[in-house]
Amino acid sequence: MNVGLEHYLVVSAVLFALGLLGVVTRRNILVIYMSLELMLNAANLALVAFSRFNNNLDGQVMVFFIITVAAAEVAVGLALIVALYRRRQTTHVEDLNLLKH
């Protein structure tokens, strides 16, 4: 049995759902951050699979741009987390409730 487009898409969907699960259930902002990366990677996998099965390289160029933007996001996001930790001494999202009360 050959591996079809649907197999890659299912793997991508499971990965996306796992990332979402991590974002909404974990308390530590660093784990939430890693889960965000998982979701970005799931989208990349779907794009590469579509690119392969449609014989069109634009999908891979798109993935290249997504990886670049994700790298920029990682740099700025981690800098924000480090600055936040320096100011509040916490990495738990429920302690960051200044706008809530």
Partner: peptide, 13 residues
Amino acid sequence: VLAPGWLVGIAVA
């Protein structure tokens, strides 16, 4: 390590 509303989170996922 889980947020208080983790059951809702699982449902959303």
